[in-house]
């Protein structure tokens, strides 16, 4: 499931992951470490919302 950053609208796609922070493709949003930050704006995980 994809999640959107409420600050900058970056979309976390588990199929893509986040290479800038060593997150492999296939990693669910829930499985991201607590200190993971939005790669675009640095917002914490709490600022993300599920997009349907």
């Amino acid at each position: 499931m994809k999640y959107k950053c409420k600050v900058c609208e970056y979309i976390y796609d588990p199929a893509v992951g986040d290479s800038t922070q060593g997150i492999n493709p296939g990693t669910d949003f829930e499985a991201l470490p607590d200190d993971w930050l939005c790669p675009e704006c640095g917002a914490p995980k709490e600022e993300f919302e599920l997009i349907n």
């Binding site: 600050v7 930050l37 675009e40 704006c41 640095g42 917002a43």
Partner: peptide, 9 residues
């Protein structure tokens, strides 16, 4: 200390 969004990324 990185403090993103206090005030910019």
């Amino acid at each position: 200390f990185h403090t993103p969004l206090v005030h910019w990324p």
